[in-house]
């Protein structure tokens, strides 16, 4: 390292000079964070650190699959809130609107969407509890994590099935 401010031996920057460039990038790094993403390989040579998680080289695993599924169900439930809004607004609007929405939801397509919606809700609910346990620092060991993952999948199936058994019996 050269002393800051004392670099009289260094030539001044010129345009087109390669200083400050990184292999694989043909522009100078503009962000401080990029400067921190530099490490050494086993030969001691400075290289850019790889950026995880490299989805294309990872074998799908229960941990990563459940993780992305939490996000997917979250987005699906976000779309599902449109149904909730439609249901409540129709109920507030009048008998005709509410009957129409109830009929739509009771149709085969509506039921299919609702079954998917409840499954997503129960999955996000159960996996959310798993996330809250992690936030308390519990359940991080791999065997625990795999077990809780399978419990979440099982609970989702049981809760969804239970909901619709009750739903169709009440019908």
């Amino acid at each position: 390292m050269t002393k800051a401010g004392g670099g009289t031996k260094q030539p001044p920057h010129k345009s087109g000079q390669k200083s400050g460039l990184v292999k694989g990038l043909n522009n100078p790094m503009k962000d401080v964070r990029e400067a921190l993403m530099v490490g050494r390989n086993s030969e001691g040579k400075l290289v850019r650190r790889p950026i995880s998680p490299h989805l294309q080289v990872y074998r799908p695993q229960i941990s990563s699959a459940l993780s992305i599924f939490h996000r997917i169900t979250g987005c699906a439930l976000g779309a599902g809130t449109l149904l909730l809004t439609l249901w409540l607004v129709a109920a507030a609007s009048g008998d005709a609107a509410f009957s129409a929405v109830q009929a739509l939801l009771a149709s085969w397509l509506g039921l299919l969407v609702l079954i998917g919606f409840t499954a997503a809700l129960f999955y996000h609910f159960c996996n959310g509890i798993r996330h809250l346990f992690w936030d308390f620092g519990k359940g991080y060991e791999l065997p625990d994590m795999h077990r809780s993952g399978y419990i979440v999948l099982g609970a989702t199936v049981v809760l969804t099935a239970g909901f619709w058994v009750i739903g169709f019996l009440v019908w």
């Binding site: 050269t2 260094q10 030539p11 200083s19 400050g20 292999k23 400067a35 400075l46 290289v47």
Partner: peptide
């Protein structure tokens, strides 16, 4: 290492350690 080396991927930021810590804190 020579900071002007073309193969050196580090970026040399003219900034004090304190300034950097404040900027990233």
């Amino acid at each position: 290492m020579d900071p002007m080396n073309a193969n050196d991927p580090r970026v040399h930021i003219m900034r004090s350690q304190l300034g950097r810590a404040r900027g990233l804190g």
